[in-house]
C-alpha cells in the first residue's frame, strides 16, 4: 500500500494534469463554476433600525385591527366572518416573520441552501397540518354514522380515575361546595363581580356546540368601555342561563366542527 505514490492510472498523462474546465484543487467543489467564495455580509445598523421600526409598526397594526374589529362589532353590530380576523392577523405575522428572517437572520444575503432548508421545514409543517386537518375535519362526511358521537367535556375517564362530571362542571361544583359552602347566590355575585371588574378577562361567550363562523366580541381594555352591555347579553351568546348544565348530553361530532 503505497499511500504516498500516485496511483496507477488508465490515462497516466492526466494524473497530475488539470482537467478541462478549470479544475481547482483548492476548491472543495472541484471546479470554479460550482462554488463562489462566501462573502461575509454586514447588515447595516440603519437597515436593522428600519426593520425594527417596521416590526413595531406591524405589531401595533395587528393589535389595533383586532381591537378595531371588536369595536366595530360592539358599536355598529357589523360582524366579520372568522376568516377575516384570522387571515389579517396571520398575514401580518407572516410579513413580520419574513422581515425577521430576511434581515435579522440575514437569510436574504445568505447561502441559498439555508433558505431552501427553512422553506422545507415550512413545507413539512404545511403537510402535517393539511393532512391532519383533512382527516379530522371530515369525520362522518361520507357516511354520517361514522361521525360517531362526542361527549361534551370528554368521557371523564382520566388516567386511572373517572370524574363524576365533565371537568369544568366538576370544578365549579367543588368550588361551590368547598369554598362557598354551597352558596349559589354568592357564587353568582362573585362571578358578576369578577367579570364586571376584569373586563379584559371576561368570557363573553356561553358554551354552544354549533356556532362558529363569526368573531366574538371580547373584553375591552379601557375601563368602562363596554360597561353599557351586560356580560352575557352581547347578542351572540346563548343567554345567561347555564347551558353547560346539559354538558353530559351527547352531541354529534360533525356538528361541533364548522
Amino acid at each position: 500500500m503505497n499511500h504516498n505514490q500516485p496511483l496507477r492510472s488508465a490515462h497516466a498523462a492526466d494524473a497530475h494534469g488539470h482537467a478541462p474546465g478549470g479544475f481547482d484543487e483548492t476548491n472543495p467543489h472541484g471546479t470554479a463554476a460550482g462554488h463562489h467564495a462566501h462573502k461575509h455580509v454586514i447588515v447595516s445598523a440603519f437597515t436593522n433600525r428600519v426593520v425594527l421600526a417596521v416590526l413595531l409598526t406591524f405589531t401595533a397594526l395587528t393589535v389595533g385591527l383586532a381591537n378595531a374589529e371588536v369595536w366595530i362589532q360592539q358599536y355598529f353590530d357589523i360582524h366579520f366572518p372568522t376568516w377575516v380576523n384570522v387571515s389579517v392577523a396571520m398575514s401580518i405575522a407572516t410579513v413580520k416573520a419574513a422581515l425577521v428572517v430576511m434581515y435579522f437572520m440575514q437569510l436574504r444575503y445568505d447561502n441559498p441552501i439555508n433558505t431552501v432548508i427553512f422553506l422545507f421545514s415550512l413545507f413539512a409543517f404545511a403537510l402535517f397540518l393539511g393532512f391532519t386537518t383533512i382527516d379530522l375535519d371530515n369525520r362522518g362526511k361520507v357516511y354520517a354514522y361514522k361521525g360517531g358521537e362526542v361527549q361534551v367535556g370528554g368521557n371523564r375517564i382520566v388516567g386511572a380515575k373517572t370524574l363524576d362530571k365533565p371537568i369544568v362542571q366538576q370544578r365549579r361544583e367543588e368550588f361551590l361546595k368547598s369554598v362557598l359552602a354551597g352558596d349559589q347566590a354568592k357564587f353568582d355575585a362573585m362571578k358578576a363581580e369578577l367579570f364586571h371588574h376584569r373586563q379584559n378577562y371576561h368570557p363573553r361567550v356561553e358554551h354552544s356546540v354549533s356556532t362558529s363562523g363569526t368573531s366574538r366580541p371580547r373584553g375591552g381594555t379601557t375601563p368602562g368601555l363596554f360597561e353599557a352591555k351586560a356580560p352575557a347579553d352581547d347578542g351572540h351568546g346563548h343567554g345567561a342561563d347555564h347551558k353547560h348544565d346539559s354538558n353530559s348530553a351527547t352531541k354529534p361530532a360533525s356538528g361541533s366542527g364548522h
Partner: peptide, 25 residues
C-alpha cells in the same frame, strides 16, 4: 389574592370555577 380568579391550570389541574365552556381546560 383574588378569590375565584386563579385555577386556570392545564389539564386535570384545572380548577377555575367560572368557566363557561365545557372544553375550556
Amino acid at each position: 389574592f383574588e378569590q375565584g380568579y386563579g385555577g386556570k391550570l392545564p389539564g386535570i389541574l384545572f380548577s377555575y370555577p367560572f368557566a363557561t365552556d365545557p372544553h375550556e381546560n
